[in-house]
Amino acid sequence: MNAVIEYAPLLWQGLLTTLTVTVLGGALCLVVAFAAGLARLSRHRILRWPAGVFIEVFRGTSLLVQMFWLFFALPFFGIQLHPLTAAVLALGLNEGAYAAEVVRGAIASRAKGQTEACIALGMEPALRLRRIIIPQSIPAMLPPFGNVMVDLLKNTSLVSLVTVADLTFSAQMIRSTTGQTTAIFTTILVMYFVLSYLLTLLTAWLEKRFALDRKALTLQRKENILMKVGAA
C-alpha cells in the first residue's frame, strides 16, 4: 500500500485528467448525438445520408483504431493533433455515434398523435421538435444516455495508450517504478468503479427529475397500442 500513498499526487493528477477527458468527451458526445441523430431523421437526403455513413463507420470500427488513426495516421495529412485532442475527439465521435441512435430511436418512437396535434395547431417542424417532441423524448433517452456515459468513462482508460497521462497511465507508471502491482491496480479499479457508480446515480436523479410521471407514460403506451390496432 506504500506505493499508493507515496504516489498519491500522481494518481490525483491522473484522476483529474480522466475527469477532464470524460467531461469534454461527454460534451462532444451530446452535441454529436443530437446533430447526427436529428440529421438521420431529416426529410432531406443530403443530411440523412452523411449522418448514416458517419454513424455506421464510427459504430462499426474499434474506438482504439479510431483513436490511433487520429493520433498516428492524421499526421500523414499534415495534421498533428495534441494527444488530448485526439483522445477527446475519438471518444466524443465514437460514443456520439452510439448516442445518435438513442436520439433517433427515442424521437422516432414518439406517439404519432403528438406530431398530429402539432400539425393541427399549425406548428412547423422545427418548432415541433424544439418545443414538443424533444422535451418529451428526454425521459426515454436518459437511461441509454447514462449507459453511453458510463461506457465513455470506462473507455477514457484507452487514452493512456496515446500517451495521455490519465488514471490508467499513472497507474502503469507507478507499477513500473515500484513493482507494487496489486495495490496500484486495485486502487484504480475501485476509483473507476466509484466514478461509474456516481454516474449511474446522476442518471437516476435526472430520470426522476425529467420523468413525465408514470401515468403519463402508461397513457402514451396505451395510445401506441391503440394506433397499432387501428393500423392493422
Partner: peptide, 25 residues
Amino acid sequence: MVFQQFNLFPHMTAMENIIEAPIHV
C-alpha cells in the same frame, strides 16, 4: 382539430398546452 385520443402534450400543464401555439405560431 379535436382528436379521439386528445393528444395533449403530456409534459405541459393545461395552461401551457393552450398557450403554446398562440405564442409560437
